[in-house]
Write a protein that binds this DNA or RNA. Structure first.
Lengths: 407, 407
DNA sequence: TGACTTTGTGCCTTCGCTGAACAAATTCAG
DNA sequence: CTGAATTTGTTCAGCGAAGGCACAAAGTCA
């Protein structure tokens, strides 16, 4: 036993919960940490000291509370500036992006969104990991894990992509295995985690964004085409027994609506995506910018003035409200966060969307879910990082010192 | 400090989990308890001894394992025969029932199903509690709590009944307050718990019936009219943020179907209830027996032979499959338990229902949920008892010895 | 300036579990 | 029938992690 213990062995069990509180911004000071953990000041102090010696957080002598309070001011707890990071990646319809993310969900460094015409998963992910390795090398920080967000359901426990329906990607691709192989090739810790982008975005919003504090958080977001959903229950992502839950795109919102490739008609997927809005407004998709950008710009610039755009926006908003009501009837969340086009629909006319949800939900005002736009930039990326941080948040000691055996 | 400790103070934290394991039948012996709890034999032994001195379980010297194994046979752990019970009640469309339920979910004593024409909640619940108090008096056992199942969503945290749509009951009735008042009037512990009958049935099936061991359990059941749903995630009932989740009756399964009182058409509620089946088979509801009994008898006796009944059953089965597929797409459960008429539809033609679910679920076979009929008699009643047992399962010591203050 | 309030820290105690040793009850091989 | 092997139950010493308490420190308020 070479490593002589520092005699203070308190706060080992509470280490993970404490780090999680600092990570999510719920413990700005040791005093708050004490009450949030439900332990004594002595224990909280020991926990904070331990996290500091691990290099994860710093304790500033500057007052951490907003002043005005009586008594001795508590010190400020913050994420260490030079602490470890994780590698986060996101694959989207026409490219990828890599980033380094620190505790607290802050993006330390990121590549621009890289376009690629290649449809081979191994090649895209290989480029992504190489870009991430470059970021790491220039930053000089320690990397504790890696996470990847993909625009497809990811089946558990195999880690294979089920779709996607809207990306040229072979169904059933073993994304996690590919990701791990690329990580190993780049000399990085080969224990990467993969998840669906909307799911991971929801996780990020829950911990660092608009979902903060929600017990039952539902997220619905449109990408370039199609609609994705996610559910965070008591702080944990609900992905179902096989990772295939919250496939909300095929709720029926208009029995007489346009046909969907799932075989039905009037699915949320085809009735509330950017193309549906452009279509309803009588606009053909232009050559420049993504469909999402075109639809967003249409709402931003012409919604206040153009009657046809108003009518189209209202129609799509009403359909979205009906779909959300169906989810409210089943899940009864206390908060709903909207992303992609749905975010702009909410912001264009919040009252109309709220009324539409209320009109179609069985319990009306009683199942009162707050509708909010998403607030994080790159929430899927931050969510991918959350996945990678999870082992550290669960047991900081074990995750930072993998050498547990003798010697 | 008058009560001198017996010096053996082990196994206090593990007491609740251990009791839960015995309660759900997952720990027949101390050896299994040891591995399931992940503790040492010493601790498991101390925990079992403590539960025995509390009068909750008994340890028989008879071998508990099915023999054939090597080594010293482990003793059998079982629920104490003369242990405490809880009072469980169920209100249904035309009456009520009261019972005493022991740990392990066994019904110790029960009243017959009592009919009542009175529609006043306070009166029905008052009669129910009085009948339960009679059962208690004759049994002579200690009562540790009370739970009530009602055929309506129960809003949390107020404890008010939201519906029901199908019972003459004023919406918004404060059932929990009424229940507590009746309990107090009868001199029983006035901390009663209330829940929706399908929810509580699902909880009971998860702990003692067909849902045993499922991680994501979905239950769908028809009562006399209407369809209810419930979800048990990792052993805990998901009732949503306001208790209003799993309102599955208004999923659209036939856009051209019959109108529903919710304002839409072709809801699961009106397309797969007993009346829908009788209707589809061209039978008028008879005067004798409930609609559920008539529909069940129709399937049992005439399904194999009568072509019209076959066709009607198939049509309703297909609609049910479509509705279940919608839920599978959103929740991705690993098991689905069907009750009421849906149970008989499953048993009449399991292959057809499975095929219908698979055809309409987005991931087909991948989201592979096992369909099973419910197995418990009176599962709502047992579930109401689960609600009452919960404090005991969480902390046996605290629940059995309310006197924690000095003296 | 001094009372009051709240926070940080050191030391001892308490609680609850682990680990090792030993005894008990059964199966299996000869 | 006897003894080795195996698994279970029990006792006891020990230790890790948190609680409780006393005291010092750093502010606010009268």
């Amino acid at each position: 036993m070479t490593r002589s213990r520092t005699r203070l062995e308190r706060g080992r069990n509470a280490l993970g919960p404490a780090l999680q509180l600092v990570h999510t911004g719920r413990a700005p000071t040791r005093a708050v940490l004490t009450t949030e953990l439900g332990v004594t000041r002595a224990t909280a102090g020991a926990v904070a000291a331990e996290l500091q010696t691990l290099g994860l957080i710093t304790v500033d002598a500057r007052p951490g509370a907003p002043a005005g309070a009586q008594g001795r001011p508590s010190h400020r707890l913050s994420i260490a500036d030079d602490g470890p990071v994780v590698l986060a990646g996101q694959v989207h319809a026409d490219g990828y992006r890599a980033a380094l993310v620190a505790l607290g969900g802050t993006i330390v460094a990121t590549t621009p969104s890289c376009q690629t015409v290649d449809a081979d998963p191994a090649q895209i992910i290989g480029e992504l990991v190489a870009a991430g390795a470059d970021l790491l090398a220039t930053s000089g920080r320690r990397c504790l894990g890696a996470g990847l967000a993909v625009p497809s359901a990811v089946a558990e426990p195999e880690g294979t992509a089920r779709g996607p329906l809207h990306l040229a990607w072979p169904p059933g691709a073993p994304v996690r295995d590919i990701f791990n192989r690329c990580l190993a090739d780049a000399g990085l810790p080969a224990d990467g985690h993969c998840g669906n982008d909307v799911n991971l975005g929801a996780l990020a919003e829950h911990r660092h964004g608009a979902g903060h504090g929600a017990r039952h958080l539902l997220c619905v977001a449109t990408g370039h085409r199609g609609v994705g959903g996610a559910l965070v229950l008591d702080g944990r992502l609900h992905t179902g027994s096989a990772g295939l839950a919250l496939e909300v795109g095929h709720l029926t919102v208009d029995p007489a609506g346009r046909p969907c490739q799932c075989g039905s008609r009037g699915c949320l997927d085809v009735e509330t995506d950017p193309l549906a809005l452009l279509d309803a407004a009588g606009r053909a998709p232009g050559p420049e910018g993504s469909l999402l950008d075109q639809a967003r710009d249409l709402i931003r610039t012409e919604y206040p003035t153009d009657p046809a755009v108003r009518a189209a926006t209202h129609a799509v908003t009403d359909r979205l409200g009906q779909g959300l009501a169906g989810l409210v009837n089943i899940l009864n969340p206390d908060r709903i966060i909207l992303g992609g086009l749905h975010r702009w629909l909410l912001q264009a006319n919040p009252g109309r969307l709220r009324a539409a949800v209320r009109a179609h939900s069985l319990w009306g005002k009683d199942s009162n879910a707050a509708l909010q736009p998403c607030t994080l930039d790159h929430n899927s990326l931050v969510g991918a990082a959350e996945l990678a941080w999870q082992p550290v948040l669960d047991d900081p000691h074990a995750a930072l010192q993998p050498e547990t055996a003798q010697q």
